Amino acid sequence: MTALLELDQLQLAYDTATGPRVVVDALSLTLERGHLGSLLGPSGCGKTSVLRAIAGFEPVRRGHIRLDGTLLSSADSSVAPQSRRVGMMFQDYALFPHLDVAGNVAFGLRRQSKPQQRERVREMLALVGLEALAGSYPHELSGGQQQRVALARALAPAPELLLLDEPFSNLDADSRERLAFELRDLLKETGLTALLVTHDQAEAFAIADRIGIMRDGRLAQWDTPYNLHEHPADAGVADFIRREALAERRAAAHARGRQSAA
């Protein structure tokens, strides 16, 4: 396989009164075409900033971002977000409340003819299993259904790369686990390349072919789920994997206890 996404020595920083504050530094990774990647780490480690830089919403101080060999961002140049062939699914889904499901999915297809838009919307709603809800409005949908609409809208323009920012954070634990596996199956079915940002280890390991452990703005390890468990790059990665797994087991046991009590 060939690399679709390449990040090379990426540095991101914000200007403050006392000078630039570096939030991501010396980050390099490649994501192969058709693979699903995930950036995993605690809040504030810089993972969402990386996603926003790939989408074109954050400037690059150093290094570069390439998609299929085309330079998207560097310190000296930047391709406009709408010209990057990158789709993004936001954490809060960002659905338009005044548009029905079909209208939301069609939003990024305005350059196509009306018949082309209708056919693409039909294809996308069939893909996510929401054909029967084309005329419904966002407030009439469950959280999982809203997520599917947001995904269909992100996929409709046929991006080469899909970015997902904490796509399950608004859902309950049971829905998150179920939809994580469904999302992986759907993305693999389409052959799309995607990069997911999450702080939830279970989500990352359920979805991704490659996972990046981020720590204080740096990439501690970019590897397969198996290698992260069996061959952590350092004690910090090993400790993070163990702590997160223990927390997840405790949360699952707590949930089972509540269900038994009920």
Score class of each variant (00 low, 15 high):
S83L: 15
V86P: 13
G44S: 11
S73T: 06
M88V: 14
S77G: 03
R52Q: 12
P81K: 00
A17L: 11
S38T: 14
E32M: 02
V86T: 06
F96Q: 09
V50S: 04
P59M: 05
P97L: 08
E32K: 15
L27W: 01
G37S: 06
P81G: 07
G19K: 13
D76V: 10
T18G: 07
G34D: 12
L95H: 04
P59Q: 00
A26K: 06
Y14R: 07
V24P: 06
L36N: 14
T48Q: 06
L71M: 07
S83V: 09
A55M: 10
I54H: 01
L51K: 00
C45W: 02
E32H: 06
G69A: 02
A17S: 11
L29Q: 01
T18L: 14
D25R: 12
D92K: 09
S73Y: 00
Q11R: 14
L95P: 12
A17E: 13
G34T: 04
S74M: 13
G34L: 02
F90C: 06
H35T: 03
R85C: 05
Y93Q: 10
R33C: 02
A94I: 09
A17Y: 07
R52M: 09
T70Y: 01
T30Q: 15
A13N: 08
S83F: 07
R84G: 11
L10C: 10
L51Q: 05
P59S: 03
G46V: 04
L39T: 03
G44I: 08
V50D: 02
T18W: 07
L10H: 08
S49Q: 01
I65R: 02
L72G: 05
Y93D: 14
L27K: 07
L39Y: 12
L67I: 05
R66A: 09
F96M: 14
G56S: 02
P42L: 00
I65N: 00
V22C: 13
Y93K: 14
A94N: 03
E58A: 05
A75Q: 05
T70W: 00
R85K: 13
P59I: 01
D68R: 02
G41W: 02
D15T: 13
I54Y: 02
M89P: 07
R84I: 06
A17P: 04
R84V: 09
G87N: 09
T18Y: 08
A80S: 08
S83H: 02
T70L: 05
L31H: 10
S83D: 15
G19M: 13
D15M: 09
S43P: 08
L67W: 05
S49E: 06
T16C: 07
T70V: 15
P81L: 04
D76K: 08
G34S: 04
A53P: 12
V79E: 00
D76N: 10
R52A: 03
V50I: 10
R33W: 07
I65W: 07
M89Y: 15
L10N: 15
A55D: 04
V86C: 05
R21G: 04
F90H: 12
S28G: 11
S77P: 03
T30N: 07
Q91S: 11
Q91K: 03
S83C: 08
V24R: 00
L67D: 08
R62E: 15
Q11T: 15
P81M: 09
G41K: 01
L95W: 00
L71T: 11
S77K: 08
V24G: 05
